[in-house]
Design a protein around this nucleic acid. Sequence first.
DNA 1: ATGCTAAACGGACTGCGGTCCGCTTATTAT
DNA 2: ATAATAAGCGGACCGCAGTCCGTTTAGCAT
Lengths: 230, 230
Amino acid sequence: MGTVSLIPIRPRVEAVHSAAARSAPSAASARAGHRPGGQPAAESERRDAARNRKLLLSAARDLIEECGADGLTMDSLAARAGVGKGTVFRRFGSRAGLMMSLLSEAEAQFQAGFMFGPPPLGPGAPPLERLLACGAERIGWVLEFGELARAADASAYNRFDVPAAVLWRRHLELLLREAGMSADPWLMAGALAATLEPERILHSVRVHGMSPGSLVESWRELATRVVRGT
Amino acid sequence: MGTVSLIPIRPRVEAVHSAAARSAPSAASARAGHRPGGQPAAESERRDAARNRKLLLSAARDLIEECGADGLTMDSLAARAGVGKGTVFRRFGSRAGLMMSLLSEAEAQFQAGFMFGPPPLGPGAPPLERLLACGAERIGWVLEFGELARAADASAYNRFDVPAAVLWRRHLELLLREAGMSADPWLMAGALAATLEPERILHSVRVHGMSPGSLVESWRELATRVVRGT
DNA sequence: ATGCTAAACGGACTGCGGTCCGCTTATTAT
DNA sequence: ATAATAAGCGGACCGCAGTCCGTTTAGCAT
């Protein structure tokens, strides 16, 4: 036991959701291309699989428009798309995986903004300004896609280790380092990221009626103080 | 409609879990005493009910010791305690409610510490010192009871509005005000509270191997900077 | 065209949290 | 003691996420 042979079939899910195949990760990741960022999984996907993926994503968007993200069930999705339930799970691995796939375009755009976009969001501006800008951007993003994001996080035991979350935190960490942060930048980045989690932001807005502006203002205060400290 | 008459039976759950009876809260809370803090619900609880509650709590502790908090299922609990499943839900309302009941003693002790205990945790010390102390205390508390706390939070749609969470946030808010916080203290308190959430802390420790000491140190840095800003 | 094989498929099945509702029992008034 | 009644009880039942495994099919080699 312990060798790779214990992975007989390996369904082609779109992203790395669970830390399956704990051992021998090199051998496991060597075979068959997990497209890390996007979902098309370009290299080799059977026609019917691709067709069903599109069908499912489209049906999911329809259902969410009708019933909201929380109202979408995997059964209803399968029925609406006219495929079996097993197919849904084969494609997306889990409900959270499905939600992530639905988010991936918006997520990619957001990432592109702070990584390659124009200043002050993208590179070129001083770190504190970038921090303020990307916080504001994030708040707006959450207000637009938060319901989906929350559904994607929900019950994901490892929501902090999902690629998008790791990248976001790393970005904050980088900015803190550039700003000369003396304390542990990884932990401080985590603290800042915690502030901007969808569930919390949506709760502030929807339950307590906070305005987006006040959230942005609060982020400005927080980020400024954290960076000013050193 | 809209009057109180739509609450025919009212099961005697131990705490206010969901925001039921949205309207006429005064009339609703007027009849029959919800002991706000503790669970005994002293005034009028039938003998068998009290016996079963103790049975259930004890069985729950046993099961958690055997299988961990995540391994406890409501069915197994009912079976172990020798009662029907309906009884479990009548007592605790939900899985999260059960976990909160299990936590309530530890929670109360924690609260007593920062509200009435000796300085620097309790009143008497300057606000920043109290903030540092209560953060450290919280981190230790989470490391001890975090698994339960996470199970109590999990899937609680309104985990932020649960009494314990509200009190904790209010305490942070109070300290910030005393420290002369110029920005919105409620939002800043939320940001600080987010940093200390069980799920995040446990993730740092269990997945990334951070030491409790580094977490405390990081909290010190964060809190200091936030307060120093004004 | 034909046959082979790995991938994909579908839907029955499991386990869990939570609800419902008819039955039982503790408590209180008479 | 007895009757009335509200609280408590139990377990069948539901909806949902996620799994399993026998069957079908796309893609390729010949």
